[in-house]
Nucleic acid binder design. Structure first.
Lengths: 336, 336
DNA sequence: CTGGGTTTCGATAACGTTCTCGCTACTATT
DNA sequence: AATAGTAGCGAGAACGTTATCGAAACCCAG
């Protein structure tokens, strides 16, 4: 109820010295003798002293907090990215504040705008799939607030961004399908307007062209397994049906496998399926799902690293980092 | 680079009035005329003013931030709990800071101890499975810091806690196995010392006893699917083998199904498996997994609600809330 | 002893807000 | 017309910390 925490003044009074000395002793800086320093540190520990970040933040105008703005965390990719962010941040003594936009542009704008600029040192954001207007981010940049995008990045804004190599990842996936002998390949694409959707689609199309193949259909929709099922329904409506599916992510690919399984269409032998992410369920589902593994944890770490660099030295040049992916072959692309 | 944000003083100077008036106008309180209020609000918007939380926090000694300390977020349960916490917090205008302990008691203690008490208004924590010493939490309580535990709760400490009804959930699961005709039932238990492990085990044992059955083995280990596999190996070593498994969570149950599938032991028909959580992969795996659904999202929301109540009125009595679970029957417990 | 150079420390002003007073000017009451 | 009451505002202290500047206290060379 009282909740009077012990302050630097209490320690000063206790020891009969000035607050300035205590402050200096606490941050073991120059201008303080070894013995008083030890004395201060000991009594600080004894009195259970904790620094008041509001006060330090006020005078130093820095809060050692970063905001992470992300569509959701209930999937493997995002939660792993956050784990990477969190671990790096803690190493560097930064604290992370979490904001979920639930893939709503309205919430994203609201959070960014209402987020008191003074309460964080920088932002790490993955935009929603609805985001088209970027003015709320533009305002941050004009206020010199460090900002780095990851995974889903806008392409008309000049800041640091870190992504997996979506284009060559898609190339690898398509290449693999072709090597397995599939020829009527369709693509379950992501929502339009997302850079990532564009990159993965482009990799798919370029690889087909390189092999003189035509696309057997591209359907844009959301990222859920339910979306995957619906897309399959549309794709298999016609007379000639595809014999392979490259999905923009694993969740939709899993939806596709489920759809095929229900119709007793042999996955792999008759129609191959490959995803993107390497979600843990991709090796639990049967048949297990071939996929392109994304370095989610590293994306979290390095985007946090880039952000902290921006925070610590102003005018640190904007980076564009692209981390490699890896093809993982499982049962869903085995012909026999 | 300059990053000089506009302050309340700038607005006062601009309008030729005092800072006190601006401050009052901003929080539309008494003692300010409607017209000056409007004037202040308009110029504040025009000058792009954002409140400095360090300053308000310093004088009001409240930060509108809560800390969430959790073992991990890369699984369905925890990430869903956090989603619930986040949404409720945002509604009430609180911000959430995330700390991952990675199930290490060392990190938990470190985070709690170094977390400046003055930087958050309260804590929401789910302890690690190693946590035995609770002194770091005890210190918080003595400093009157609001604290509520969820899911994994210590039982020797006097604070609010919110959990799912582990005991009756386990009863339902065991009851269901018995109703399906399984008789040689084993239990894949959680780590020793966890309240949740104890509750689910007790529900299992009491239900068996009520039906005059004996336990066919209890194995304690971690929460991963790998743990589930290893436990199965041990259980099936003997001459007489169990015909049903009740697992403390879905991940271990999935490990069990995988283990059985690899050995071509028909899941359901020969050995039934039931889990706990209702992880989304439980309906993707084949055969799909029967389970006890936990209200993860509601646990997040209500624990956040209880915490904010504690923050807002001192001496709010400690709550012990237990949310109901639900039996979900799928293929893994079907005999035919 | 004197004087210049260190070392160690203390006073004090900031940081941006809120809060407690008190003061003015206006309205209402008698 | 005099007084009481009230609405609106300003001056200044406070919150806990850091930063700047200067003042002791000490050392050692001359």
């Amino acid at each position: 109820m009282t909740k009077r925490l012990t302050t630097i003044k209490d320690i000063a009074r206790e020891l009969g010295i000035s607050v300035a000395t205590v402050s200096r002793a606490m941050r073991d800086t120059y201008d303080v003798s070894a013995e008083t320093r030890k004395l201060v540190l000991d009594t600080a520990a004894k009195m259970n002293y904790r620094p008041n970040f509001n006060a330090t933040g006020l005078v130093k105008s820095g809060t050692h907090k970063i905001a992470v703005i992300i569509p959701a965390i209930t999937n493997y990719y995002f939660s792993t990215v956050i784990t990477g962010i969190q671990e790096y941040a803690l190493e560097k003594n930064y604290q992370v504040m979490l904001y979920l936009t639930n893939d709503s542009a309205y919430w994203e704008t609201k959070v960014v705008r209402e987020l008191s600029l003074s309460s964080v040192d920088g932002l790490l954001v993955c935009i929603t799939c609805e985001t088209t207007d970027l003015s709320h981010f533009q305002e941050l940049i004009e206020a010199d607030m460090p900002l780095v995008f990851f995974d889903r990045v806008p392409d008309t804004i000049n800041t640091s961004m870190v992504v997996q190599d979506d284009y060559t990842g898609a190339c690898k996936a398509t290449e693999h399908l072709i090597a397995q002998g599939y020829t009527r390949i369709a693509h379950l694409a992501g929502p339009r307007g997302l850079n990532l959707t564009q990159q993965r689609m482009q990799g798919y199309m370029d690889t087909l062209k390189r092999h003189n193949l035509e696309s057997f259909g591209i359907i844009h929709s959301g990222f859920s397994d339910e979306n995957g099922r619906q897309d399959m329904q549309m794709l298999f409506n016609g007379d000639v049906k595809p014999d392979a599916i490259f999905s923009v992510n694993d969740r939709k690919a899993i939806g596709a496998i489920l759809w095929l399984r229900e119709r007793h269409i042999p996955v792999g032998a008759e129609v191959g399926v490959i995803g993107f992410t390497n979600d843990p369920t991709s090796k639990i589902i049967s048949p297990s799902l071939s996929t392109i593994a994304e370095p989610a944890y590293e994306i979290g770490r390095t985007s946090c690293e880039v952000l902290i660099r921006h925070i610590q030295k102003q005018n640190y040049p904007a980076q564009e980092i692209s981390l490699p992916t890896e093809l993982i072959v499982r049962e869903s692309t085995k012909r026999s």
